[in-house]
Simulated assay, not measured.
Amino acid sequence: MRLIFLAASAFGALSVAILVVMTAAAVVARYILGMPIAWTEEVSGLLMIWIVMVGAIACEANRQHLTIDLIEGVLSPRLNRALSAVVGLASIGLLIFMSWQAWALGQTTAFKKTQILGVSWFWLDLAVVVGAAGTAVVMAWRLIRPDAEARSDAAADRLEH
């Protein structure tokens, strides 16, 4: 999980850095030089979608998604594990469906191109496929091998101290 988190975080950090530099350049070009850069809006939109979807994988790999533990405090540990498994399986099912629908949408919109760069809309939809499928894989791995994550967390803690 740690490697997935680091890879997704690195991708996100690099993408955000590119987005910030590009936006700053676009502002300078438009308001100081009087020569707007037309393609920056399209690239910004593409990057934002990829940042959010790959960020979802990083959040899941590091257990940083928002959760509401309304009833966990009153359930026994066994019921908590069962509830966690049910929620995990439902989430995986939803993510797989979302990924499948995004792939189908990407196939039908692949011929459409963005106005300025002429990039296929498929690349926008692919971000959703990657994010949803990647998050589902991380969740499935955690359901299948919960003990492996606990061991790797304990090993990481020993290395830090």
Score class of each variant (00 low, 15 high):
I37Q: 01
V28Y: 08
M35D: 13
A29T: 02
N62I: 11
Y31D: 07
M53F: 08
V74E: 13
I32L: 15
N80Q: 14
V20E: 01
Y31L: 06
A85K: 06
R63Q: 09
V27Q: 02
G73D: 02
G45S: 08
S44P: 03
I18W: 09
M48L: 15
E42T: 09
P77D: 07
A29N: 07
W39Q: 01
V86S: 00
R30P: 02
M35Y: 10
Q64C: 11
E72K: 13
V20G: 00
V86N: 01
E60S: 11
T23F: 05
G88C: 04
Q64K: 14
N80F: 08
Y31K: 00
E42A: 08
H65N: 11
A61V: 02
V74C: 09
A38K: 09
I68G: 12
S84T: 08
I49R: 09
I68R: 14
V52R: 08
I18L: 11
R30Y: 06
A56E: 03
I49T: 11
S91V: 11
M48H: 10
F11H: 01
C59M: 08
L83G: 15
A10E: 10
G12V: 00
Y31Q: 02
A58P: 05
V87M: 15
W50S: 03
L89C: 06
L47S: 04
A56D: 00
S44D: 04
L83Y: 11
M53P: 02
I18R: 05
R63F: 04
P36D: 01
L14E: 00
M22Y: 04
G12N: 04
D69T: 11
G55A: 09
G55C: 09
L47R: 06
V20Q: 04
E42C: 10
I71G: 10
L19M: 14
A56K: 03
S15N: 02
A10N: 12
G12R: 05
I32Y: 12
I49V: 14
L66R: 01
